[in-house]
Amino acid sequence: MLNKFDIQIRTEQEHAVIETAGYLNDALGEQLSEKARGLIQDGYTQLVINLEKTTLINSIGISILIEIIEALDEREGTLNFCGLSATQERTFRMMAIAKYAGIFPDEEAAIANL
């Protein structure tokens, strides 16, 4: 397999952090979506997605992130991203994601701004 990816989840009392590693495409995106929806169903509506170890994100992967934003909006939740490369941040801003989710340089700032 060309694309080796991984998803790690850490939960605290008030929020959860999802850390993805690898190439965020449709396959990793679907796994991420499933995990995020599971967390939302469990009552975690304050989420951070840490993309520091995510090497590349294609437009299909981003479309799945948008679905997570929408799922959280329905529960009046918050999603913050951190660890984006300059290219990833530029793409997110172009696609208007920054209007509906926070973008922070590191996990500490992303959690503090939930």
Partner: peptide, 13 residues
């Protein structure tokens, strides 16, 4: 269009 009209999911390539 989804919940937010300016947040379209596909066609960005």
């Amino acid at each position: 269009p989804g919940l937010h009209p300016d947040l379209r999911k596909r066609g960005w390539g």
